[in-house]
Computed example of a mutant assay.
Amino acid sequence: MHSTQAVECRGFDRPDDVREFEHGRAEVLEMAGGTIGRLVLHPGWQWSKDVKPIAGTDWCEAPHFQYHVSGTLHVKMSDGNEFDVGPGWVSSLPQGHDAWVVGDEDVVLVDWYGASEYAKRS
């Protein structure tokens, strides 16, 4: 028995889209009918300073389901809940949050849910 579904193997070295913003970038792959993104966030990055001007909303309205490859990200939810997320963790963030890089290491995230519209200029 064989599969009729096509195999896709790709790397972020050749993304379909790269969205640059202050202190970071989003690299986006379109594959298997879906979108996956890798966010590379440099020290000094904060959503409310670097992406909010692009999004035009008070809080990040992109829900995320992401794997944290490296670095530490501090997340503040619109309800006031705050926490840190680091390497090896998986996070599911609903709409309504801000976040920033903690320390001097790049934060690298692989996002299966929020990448399609993240930091997309209109």
Rank of each mutant, 00 (worst) to 15 (best):
P53Q: 08
V51S: 06
H74C: 07
Q46I: 02
G56E: 06
W59L: 04
D58G: 10
Q46D: 11
K49R: 14
K49T: 12
A62F: 14
V40D: 01
W45P: 12
H74E: 15
A55N: 13
P53T: 01
V40Q: 11
K49Y: 09
D58T: 14
G56S: 07
P43C: 03
W45D: 08
S70D: 06
K49V: 08
V40E: 12
S48M: 08
V51Y: 01
G56A: 11
W59A: 07
S48N: 14
W47T: 04
G44Q: 08
A62H: 15
L39N: 08
F65Q: 10
V51T: 12
W45M: 11
S70L: 01
P63G: 01
V69C: 03
C60S: 03
P43D: 00
Q66W: 00
D58M: 11
W47L: 02
P43W: 00
A62K: 07
Q46S: 15
S70A: 05
F65D: 13
G71S: 10
T57L: 04
K49P: 00
Y67A: 02
G71W: 02
G71Q: 07
A55D: 15
Y67R: 03
A55H: 15
V69Y: 00
A62T: 11
L41T: 01
E61C: 02
A62D: 14
L39S: 02
P53A: 02
V75A: 02
V40C: 07
V40M: 04
Y67P: 04
T72A: 08
A62C: 14
P63C: 00
L73D: 15
P53S: 04
W47K: 05
L73K: 10
L39T: 00
W47F: 06
C60N: 11
K49I: 03
P63T: 01
Y67L: 07
G71P: 03
A55L: 09
T72E: 14
I54W: 03
A62E: 15
T57M: 10
W59S: 04
G71R: 03
Q46Y: 06
K49Q: 13
H64E: 08
S48G: 14
P43K: 06
W59I: 01
T72S: 08
D50I: 04
Q46A: 15
T57R: 10
D50P: 07
D50Q: 06
D58R: 14
S48A: 15
H74P: 11
F65T: 07
H74S: 13
G44I: 04
D58C: 10
G44F: 10
S48F: 06
S48E: 13
L41K: 05
L39F: 12
V40N: 05
H42K: 14
P43T: 04
D58L: 11
L41S: 02
G56Y: 13
V69D: 08
E61A: 00
A55R: 13
D50S: 15
F65S: 12
T72C: 13
I54V: 08
W59Q: 04
W47R: 03
L73C: 09
G56P: 07
I54S: 07
S48L: 06
I54Y: 02
C60R: 01
W59D: 09
T57I: 05
H64Y: 08
C60W: 01
S48Y: 07
Q66M: 09
H42M: 12
V51A: 07
S70G: 02
K49H: 12
Q46G: 15
Q46K: 15
L39E: 05
D50E: 03
W45L: 11
V69W: 01
A55E: 15
C60A: 02
C60I: 00
H42S: 11
Q66T: 10
D58W: 05
I54D: 08
W45I: 06
